[in-house]
Design a protein around this nucleic acid. Structure first.
Lengths: 113, 113
DNA sequence: GCCAACTGCAAGTCTGGGGTTGCATTTGGA
DNA sequence: TCCAAATGCAACCCCAGACTTGCAGTTGGC
């Protein structure tokens, strides 16, 4: 019905899982600065190319990264769209919690006078 | 200099890791609806109390949950603050990526005419 | 045409952490 | 007072996934 996490109670943990690894986060933010291939990233980061490839697959699966070929290279770049979707949803959820909390407090105070 | 993740390049993966587990997410959203103790949650969710206790520790460590004693119960409740912080930061990062992307495209098109 | 460089596939290792069970301890409240 | 119910601690199991090494296949570009 919806791909956003507020659409239902679908767990958005997949996206979070993609963001939860340090190496993956480094790769992602690095791609945010400028697109790069797996081999190029492997030269910059202290992990093997294969490890990076796997991370890129996860990131692509989460919709956080997009790939296109340039010459014989497979260049990846970071996509902001999914991330801002998640941000918006998180913000809504947080607001709902705090609102509910405030309601409870108000109710408790008002009702006990 | 800053506790937010945009402040530096500090990896915010700790918070994401806290959100990345399904069971933990269920616990967190459940607490968002109404505060509850570990034992109460254990009765509602298909996991042992001990598992829930560990999850609550993680959530508390990430600043997503707060606890206070009521009678002999230790009641936990979800806090929106940290979550909206993360949301704001993610949104900024996403915007920066897209902006950079747009710049590159514009530059490429303009330069190749 | 050829080679250097990039990608893809396949095992295989090993640590983290999610989950459980069991028991000890405390304490609220009828 | 006394018990049911809540918390805390500890040892243990088990698997997902992060990382590596090694090799085979493809292809761009001089």
């Amino acid at each position: 019905m919806s791909t956003t996490l507020t659409g239902g109670d679908a767990a958005p943990t997949a996206v979070f899982a993609a963001l939860a690894d340090d190496t993956r986060w480094r790769i992602l933010t690095r791609l945010g600065e400028a697109p790069a291939s797996a081999s190029a990233l492997a030269r910059e980061l202290p992990v093997s190319r294969q490890a990076i490839v796997k991370h890129l697959e996860v990131l692509r699966g989460a919709g956080l990264v997009e790939a296109h070929t340039v010459g014989r290279e497979l260049v990846h770049r970071a996509l902001g769209g999914r991330l801002s979707d998640v941000a918006r949803d998180l913000d809504r959820i947080a607001a709902a919690w705090d609102r509910r909390l405030a309601d409870i407090k108000r109710l408790a105070e008002g009702g006990e006078v």
